[in-house]
Simulated scan of single mutants.
Amino acid sequence: MRHAIQLAATLLLLAAPAAHAQISSPQIKKDKKQPKENLEWLWQYAPPPADGRETQLVLDQRFRPFLEQYFTAPQTFWGNPKTGYKTLAETALDFLSVPDKVLADDNRYLSITGCVFRFCPERGLIWVDHNGSHPLVVFAAIDWIKDSRTPDQSGAEYTLWVFPNHPIDPDHIPAALIHSVARWTAHPPQGNTQIQQIANAILVDPDGTPHQIKPAAIGANTFTLPPSTEQKAQP
């Protein structure tokens, strides 16, 4: 395991709240119903038409507040200890600053993809499950392991960071999320022909607790494109 990954995971553990007992505070009324969270506005940016209006989505005035509401976990891979790490919401925005696609599945799931401005090997995915009153929203980031080969070389390695807004059991990851990650990682980044090799995958709880998981457990590098699609992916 790369030293950088070990350091990042350790920092996340240190950043996690120490007082979990606060969650069961008697001041919280368990019978009080929380209002339904409405994310229906996201659907207008999904196909049809054939290509989703991903740029308009990122520019929508509701997009930044959406990121700030759902992505609050600490992160220690984007930034550095000296200058400080960005918030997870800021990180998600950076990783979608060059919009890619908006895809809808089963009239329930939405996948929003993009990459970092001027460095598309750093890629982001936001996945939304619209079912229920409190949607499951996940931010995933493909981050280049800097002590591996450069992104333009074969054999470069990456870490997949996964941040759900609700805890996900590492042994019971939603099948629809696995499918979306598999489809996403099957395509090379913009301007490249190399499929990114995910060497590590870390699932991070909303409180910042990291869980090392096998990349294939969340679908990374498991999706095989049809030959015709693979040809289209070439420049």
Rank of each mutant, 00 (worst) to 15 (best):
G79R: 06
K33S: 08
N107G: 15
D143M: 05
K30S: 13
A216R: 08
K32V: 13
S24W: 09
H3R: 12
A19S: 05
E90L: 07
T113I: 03
G79E: 04
K82V: 13
G52L: 12
W43L: 15
D169Q: 06
G84W: 10
V162E: 03
W41Q: 04
P189H: 01
S25K: 02
L177I: 08
R183Q: 07
I168A: 10
K29C: 07
H187L: 01
A199G: 09
T10M: 07
E90Y: 03
W41F: 06
G155K: 07
T224R: 09
W78N: 09
P227D: 13
S180M: 00
D171W: 06
H211N: 06
Q56P: 00
A216C: 02
A141Y: 03
V128M: 09
E40D: 12
D129P: 05
A186C: 10
F66P: 00
D207G: 12
L13F: 05
P188V: 00
I126W: 02
S25D: 15
A21C: 08
H211V: 01
G219C: 14
A50L: 10
K82R: 09
Q234A: 10
D106S: 12
T159M: 15
E37T: 06
L88S: 11
A156P: 09
A18F: 02
S228W: 08
K232F: 09
D100S: 10
Q75V: 04
W161M: 07
L93T: 02
P189K: 00
G52R: 13
L13C: 10
Y158Q: 00
R123L: 00
K82A: 09
Q69H: 15
H211C: 01
R118G: 08
N107D: 15
D147C: 03
